[in-house]
Design a protein around this nucleic acid. Structure first.
Lengths: 332, 332
DNA sequence: CGGCAAAATGTAGACGTTTACATTTCTACT
DNA sequence: AGTAGAAATGTAAACGTCTACATTTTGCCG
């Protein structure tokens, strides 16, 4: 009759007429316990459905076998692969994943950091809300002080002393623009993230470089948004409504591209009317028909490198990780 | 000079010449503390970058503000929306999400349950590895005993006393088959999950019903797999290689459909050669061109209903949730 | 069969926080 | 000014586990 909700080490001890210490040892250092005692304890533990209390266990060690992931928006298919990579690797080393989605809100981001800290996470993988130079979240000093290993993903918090795994932004912009130019497009509408975002800035830089190399006269229009679908849809819609007619639209991430595509459609334009290029893509979507040419980055790799960087740093605090840049692959 | 890694309530108490109790109260029941004391404590807390230790805090309460999500495979785009819904709702009530991916392995699933239990999660959302009638994981009794609220998603563990949110399987199968029949297809290849999976069984039942209603002679072939891409690809490839030529392929989930589509392509068939129908779809993918007709389920809703069911059950253990069936939407 | 090392088990206290139950300190009224 | 009651703070113990250190038991040798 196993009635009680949860058994503790003390319950087991009582049953076998031993101290909690012996039970604890049986569970953690079985070689230090007499065979029969061990067998008996294990038996009772199973019988009672004993599960160690992680909270009690880690209270002392101030360590938790937990790693935290803070994403800016789970909407982005970008993160699917990343999460997969992270859980997979973390699992191998017996870490579990605490997941937060900040939905673009600085408050939620700050709260997520606090919560993670309160759960004594061993490390944090952070994809921050904004990579403006101006974005200096208040939690940053706190985070630095705790000395908890932090690895950044995709977006680089300027001034933060954490290494990260990033994408090859300028080059991707360049490649995209080159592709569109090669296809004969001369009037390009770029739809980007926030105007001050360094990622947007880098990608634009690459784009401008490509245009600069083009012998023909070119026109470049730029709309800003926030790397999500809706604002891109609205911006492009307004743009098109004003009568402007670009040869091609270059969306600086996949959600933007999708929003732009919808806007195009709403205004009666097809893919043949207006060219399209994207950075990132929707996994599997290519199979559906007319793939959108893009520079895609191996996001699984991003996640993989990030966790491994983090895990290594957790194991060895001396280790000073250095930024990694994941190259894009041009798919036309 | 705030050197130390992490400040505790004791550090604060020392600084303000008070007991930990007062500090604890200041933090949790501020109205019970003199205003000036409160101000002073809060000030010092901020200065020290104090973050409460969740482990210590919840050691007593045996409650953790944590909910666990166990997914069978994060590969499936199905789960993206679900995770989003769960994090969003959980956050509102101050719960954080512990995420596990079992990758189809029973051992990992069992381990995930144990880990979740050890972290004293307040509730678990479970999408089990298999919905065979035969699958009776060893952790089930343990889970029941703890009385931890559990809500299932998508796959129903037969014999488990947990409510869940499921899809309208038979009807979806029926709708899909009807659609294909209406398009004139008479020889249909269904590619499903495991042969004994109840989901597969239900969908097939619906399909057979539709075929039964068709006045013309029809042929139905069925291949089994496991709801992932690769096995479907292989199975369909082998099938086609053997010279069989269905009018249409009906993939019982999106990964299967994608695998089948790839197999078709590899054998030189286009979407016009062989019809296609899917249950579920890839979010956003329709914009890419030729949408695959499907019955799609609102996965965000699935996640939403599941968390809410869970949260309600956590708040009120008396509450006896009942199974919910999410209807599909036919998209042709 | 005494003695000694190794093996097995135990004792006490700590981790950081909260809680039930004191005790002290105000406030205000007579 | 004395005192009741409220307000503010304190004391002690507990949550479940682990660790350092101590004690007991065992096995084996001469």
């Amino acid at each position: 009759m196993t009635k009680p909700g949860k058994a503790t080490i003390t319950d087991i001890a009582r049953r076998v007429n031993m101290t909690t210490v012996t039970v604890s040892r049986a569970l953690n250092q079985p070689e230090k316990v007499k065979k029969e005692t061990l067998a008996q304890i294990l038996e009772v533990a199973r019988e009672l459905n004993y599960v160690p209390n992680a909270f009690a266990r880690h209270l002392k060690s101030r360590e938790s076998r937990l790693i935290g992931l803070i994403t800016a928006s789970l909407d982005n298919p970008f993160y699917g692969e990343i999460i997969k990579a992270i859980t997979r690797e973390a699992k191998k080393k017996n870490y579990s994943l605490l997941l937060f989605d900040t939905d673009g809100s600085p408050e939620l981001e700050a709260r997520a950091v606090d919560t993670l800290l309160s759960y004594q996470v061993s490390g944090i993988i952070l994809s921050v809300i904004s990579d403006d130079d101006d974005y200096q979240p208040a939690y940053l000093p706190k985070l630095e002080m705790t000395r908890i290993p932090v690895v950044q993903i995709d977006r680089k918090l300027s001034g933060a002393p954490f290494a990260g795994v990033y994408l090859e932004n300028e080059e991707s912009g360049y490649q995209g623009a080159r592709t569109l130019l090669n296809q004969g497009h001369r009037h390009i509408l770029v739809v980007g993230g926030p105007e001050r975002s360094n990622i947007t800035l880098s990608r634009l830089k690459g784009i401008r470089r490509a245009l600069g190399e083009c012998p023909d006269p070119t026109q470049l229009d730029v709309l800003y948004g926030d790397y999500t679908r809706e604002p891109a849809l609205d911006a492009v819609s307004t743009y098109l409504a004003s009568g402007k007619r670009p040869d091609a639209i270059f969306g600086l991430n996949i959600l933007i591209t999708l929003g732009s595509l919808e806007a195009m459609r709403q205004h009666g334009f097809s893919r043949t009317d207006i060219g399209l290029f994207s950075i990132d893509h929707v996994p599997y979507a290519d199979l559906y028909g007319d793939p959108i040419p893009c520079v895609s980055h191996d996001t699984f790799q991003v996640g993989l490198n990030a966790v491994n960087m983090l895990l290594r740093k957790i194991d060895n605090p001396e280790y000073q990780p250095v930024d990694q840049i994941i190259k894009g692959e041009l798919k036309t």
